[in-house]
Design a protein around this nucleic acid. Structure first.
Length: 924
RNA sequence: GCCGGGAUGGUGGAACAGGUAGACACGCAAGACUUAAAAUCUUGUGAGAGCAAUCUCGUACGGGUUCGAUUCCCGUUCCUGGUACCA
């Protein structure tokens, strides 16, 4: 066999790895561990396109590299298999989503296996599998049975809260709970009925049922979380989304806001991703201030980050949804104010967002009293105030806040300056200035004034310092079929958990996957969707969990996927620990990555795992975009003009399938065969070729720019695909898929192959001692790969392999001493060809069992070496010096250099520091 | 609007600590082999001038720091990701 026949080789080694269990990963305390993880895919009906494997290839390279370096590597793959597309398909066709999902998974697995990943497939997980979602439900139950204790700063069991209530009521309990929780003492607690007790406990539980304002998507018939909504439309499907009040399960993720923020300091993620999470959590430090209302015993609580400007408050503004606002309206303002509230409330979120510039509001007629100076100030209703943030009320300081300023200008309200500085054409004195016209805090700067003002508030009992988060509690229910059922039944209208022994609560069969006629979720169609206890039969929860439930803990399940007694055994989670390298897209920054951190912290509090950050290092690979090709048809004819000549004709452009275009040249025969109407197409060519136009767009079927990895593998092989995806550019960069350069990578593999063969096609490797040049070529590549592995710049490693093989081939190197380590070196990138060559060299064990070739610097040293010279830490000149020179000789040559002389101006340097091979420092 | 990331030949991209810009690859051109094509190999390939050695200009644009800037600083333009009345 002389030809590089990748088809045979790849099939052979993929079967070998599977039969030998080469990549099975088991706990082994003798060896250091390395956990590489990819964001598992949702198995969609379209199959994998060429963009999906990008990150998987990168992590596979790292996994194989680490294995060669002696690590025990866990590198699993699985499927996030609950999701909307399968359900939508089920609605249209009546086919059970489980069947569609199964088919898609089969196809995905087949496609993935063709690429030759070092996955341990025995660790595969599927979120829609009952043996998996049993534990998703179990985690939900633990959350239900926990509350967040602020003194311990962790989640504790709800039973411990109950025993505190029995002893002393709730007045001294510092815990995260609903705003409206009333105080009670031990006696009162004991006097409460079972129902009342449960209602109170629900206000503390980490997952709870409450009436919440949600993003309702009528077209999908379900609620969506904030990160599933983009610009007022659903992320999947692009349907309009509106705000609606509904009873929903929520997760008290806000209890963890601060720990989620602090945890970011400990992990090695890119700064932009951390920043996105910080913004999403949106911590603001400020104060809550209570304003009394004139002629009423009601009060208005506002949140502000700038109490120091309190003397500049000239009105209060309430959100239109505020019930208090409706109550406060006086007779003379009733007509206008109520009309305004009606209009504002009915404006959809979408309208409100797209129309930020229009200023609107209405005076209620009521007045509040500024607690600092006793002044009466008007109370307004304004739709720039959001009901969902802070207290839904704002103290307006028009002089120092842009929105307040615009509002005051529009309605002709007073603008009172309390920070020194000029205020001209819309520029506001900011945080730096001295505070003026402000009674007790005049003459202070912001920081001191805030402290003083908060002290005053707390003394008087009319406010306090407060930290507010932008992040809301996460809605945890979806009115869908294809998701995890919640292990909850209802008694007296209150939720109770089912018995843990009953898990998993299996998703029931339904006749249709649509909501019921009376608007209940699809599970409302299930027969016997009830729970039987000794007390009777009770209805089960009809909503299911959101998509992010299953993906928030799958990285633990990979460690122990078949465990039926625990979500994962403690000794296994302790051994594998946090994910050492997580590769995936940045689009999950505010969804999956935040929820996973939240659940991990919770499991940590529970003592179920020993880590509280799941992903130590993360790389965000850039999306691969499509690159569309165009042909230019002369209008009204069947004649197509090459790109360069199209301006000479009246043409219209047309997408052409990128798979019949190579290097932007159209394959004319394939084009004629592409569609029947093109069979008799005619062409106007340039230099005998048809050049297509190209444009970067999203990869989509309708643009004929989808490239299937299977096609690339069929034509060039998996090793070429792997190398090429890496060669395309930096992993983190967004880039269009473009096969223009793939021939070069394929040629490289063929050249590599030919190193082991004579021109006549015989396998021939000599045992002669390699020359210095040969060692040098190899060790340059070894060094480069080791360095690249620390910065994840896979693209330049591929280049360094190419250089190495080019040099070896021009040296006609066929020596075992070089070719054996060379096969190992390239094996993480191109594992199939490496295994084949390794076996040809007479090795009987897989190449993955050997170790990475040791780098030796001595091979890189040349006779002539360039020394950069730097003087006084500033001047640096590169000199070409023979390596044999002694230190004084190097110094002499450096001193004789014209640039150095110019710099020294005749003076002698005080000290000469020479770092061999590095830098000569001359200190003046 | 606010917060990130980016802009280098015909193309994808190198330059990892301020020190020979354009590695490597594609494409293109010329040549070798071939009846021919494909494949392979060799050479050239940022722009301009020159027979040539060589010189000048060049990393989006305008400035600055430095002996020296793709790299650091200030300003501008364009592309791109996130987020958006968050008080």
């Amino acid at each position: 066999m002389a030809e590089y026949s990748f088809r045979e080789i790849e099939k052979k080694w993929q079967a070998y790895w599977e039969n030998q269990g080469t990549f099975l990963a088991e706990v082994n305390p003798e060896k250091p561990k390395f956990y590489t993880l990819d964001m598992f895919p949702y198995p969609s009906g379209a199959g994998l396109h060429v963009g999906h494997p990008l990150g998987y290839i990168a992590s596979d390279i790292v996994a194989r590299f680490k294995k060669l370096k002696g690590f025990n590597v866990l590198h699993p793959m699985g499927y996030d298999s609950f999701g909307l597309p399968a359900e939508q398909y089920a609605i249209q066709t009546g086919q059970h989503p489980a069947i569609t999902t199964e088919e898609n998974i089969t196809r995905y697995t087949e496609q993935l296996k063709n690429i030759g990943f070092a996955f341990d497939w025995t660790k595969e997980v599927r979120t829609s599998d009952p043996s998996y979602y049993k534990w998703t439900q179990w985690i939900f139950m633990q959350l239900f049975n926990s509350y967040y204790d602020l003194e311990a700063d962790k989640a504790l069991s709800i039973d411990s809260l109950i025993s505190r209530f029995e002893k002393e009521g709730n007045s001294r309990v510092k815990a995260v709970c609903d705003e409206d929780t009333q105080a009670f003492d031990a006696a009162a607690w004991k006097a409460f009925s079972e129902k009342e007790k449960q209602e109170i406990l629900l206000k503390y539980r980490l997952t709870f049922l409450a009436e919440t304002s949600v993003n309702w998507c009528a077209a999908l018939g379900t609620v969506l979380s904030n990160d599933e909504v983009k610009d007022g439309f659903s992320e999947r499907g692009g349907h309009p989304v509106e705000r609606k009040k509904m009873m929903q399960w929520s997760m008290r993720i806000t209890a963890y806001a601060d720990r989620l923020l602090q945890g970011l300091e400990k992990v090695d993620w890119s700064e932009p991703i951390k920043e996105m999470q910080r913004n999403w959590i949106g911590k603001s430090i400020g104060a809550e201030v209570v304003f009394e209302i004139k002629g009423s015993d009601k009060t208005i609580k506002v949140f502000t980050t700038r109490v120091d400007t309190i003397y500049g408050v000239t009105y209060l503004a309430l959100a239109p949804e505020s019930e208090l606002a409706a109550e406060l309206i006086t007779e003379d303002q009733r007509a206008t104010a109520e009309a305004y509230i009606e209009v504002a409330k009915n404006r959809s979120e979408r309208e409100r967002m797209s129309d930020v510039k229009t200023i609107s509001g209405a005076f209620t007629g009521a007045y509040a009293i500024n607690p600092f100076n006793g002044e009466e100030i008007q109370i307004w209703v304004a739709d720039y105030v959001l009901a969902g943030y802070g207290t839904g009320a704002v103290m307006a300081v028009p002089a120092h806040d842009e929105r307040d300023y615009n509002f005051a200008k529009h309605f002709n309200l007073e603008i009172r300056q309390v920070i020194d500085g000029s205020m001209e054409n819309g520029s506001f004195p900011g945080k730096g200035g001295l505070i003026i016209n402000s009674g007790m805090i005049s003459g202070m700067y912001m920081k001191d004034a805030m402290i003083k003002a908060i002290e005053f508030l707390e003394e008087k009992g009319i406010g306090k310092g407060k930290i507010q988060y932008r992040m809301r509690d996460a809605i945890f229910t979806r009115q869908r079929y294809w998701g995890e059922p919640l292990p909850v039944y209802f008694k007296d209208g209150l939720p109770y958990l089912i018995d843990e022994k009953e898990l998993p609560l299996i998703l029931p069969e339904v006749d249709k996957y649509l909501p019921t006629e009376d608007g209940e979720p699809p599970l409302g169609r299930a027969r016997d969707w009830t729970y039987k206890t000794s007390e009777g039969e009770f209805p089960l929860e009809k909503s299911t969990m959101p998509g992010w439930a299953g993906s928030s803990w799958y990285f633990f399940r990979y460690m122990d996927p078949k465990n039926d007694a625990e979500f994962a055994a403690k000794d296994k989670t302790d051994y594998w620990g946090a994910v050492d390298l997580y590769i995936g897209g940045s689009e999950h920054a505010t969804g999956h990555l935040l929820y996973s951190r939240f659940w991990t912290k919770f499991l940590f509090d529970l003592g179920a795992v020993s880590i509280d950050e799941p992903f130590q290092k993360m790389i965000n690979q850039g999306m691969i975009q499509g690159r569309s090709n165009f042909v230019y048809r002369v209008k009204g004819t069947n004649t197509f003009v090459s790109h360069g000549l199209k301006d000479q004709f009246d043409t219209s452009d047309m997408h052409v399938d990128v798979n019949i275009v190579h290097n932007d040249q159209l394959n004319l025969d394939k084009f004629k065969a592409w569609r029947p109407d093109l069979a008799n197409a005619e062409f106007v060519l340039e230099d005998g070729k048809y050049h297509c136009g190209a444009e970067v767009e999203k990869m989509s079927k309708s643009k004929y720019n989808v490239v299937n990895p299977d096609d690339i593998i069929e034509r060039y092989g998996a090793d070429t695909l792997r190398l090429y995806e890496m060669f395309l550019g930096p992993l983190e960069q967004f880039k269009p898929w473009n096969t223009n350069g793939i021939d070069g990578v394929f040629k490289f593999l063929r050249k590599l192959w030919n190193l082991y063969y004579t021109p006549a096609g015989d396998f021939a490797v000599s045992v002669a001692e390699p020359s210095k040049e040969e060692f040098k070529a190899l060790h340059k590549a070894i060094k480069k790969m080791e360095e690249d592995m620390t910065h994840f710049s896979f693209n330049t490693s591929v280049s360094s392999f190419m250089i190495c093989v080019n040099e070896l081939s021009s040296l006609k190197c066929n020596k075992r001493g070089i070719l054996e380590p060379l096969a190992v070196l390239v094996s993480p990138y191109a594992p199939h060809i490496a295994e084949e060559l390794w076996a040809l060299l007479g090795n009987t064990e897989s190449i993955t069992k050997t170790s990475f070739p040791a780098f030796d610097e001595k091979y890189l040293i040349e006779n002539i070496h360039e020394y950069p010279v730097s003087i006084n830490g500033k001047m640096r000149v590169k000199l070409t010096l023979p390596l044999s020179l002694t230190v004084p000789e190097i110094e002499a040559v450096a001193m004789a250099d014209p640039n150095v002389q110019k710099w020294l101006e005749g003076k002698a340097p005080k000290k000469v520091i020479i770092v061999p091979g590095k830098i000569v420092n001359l200190v003046v």
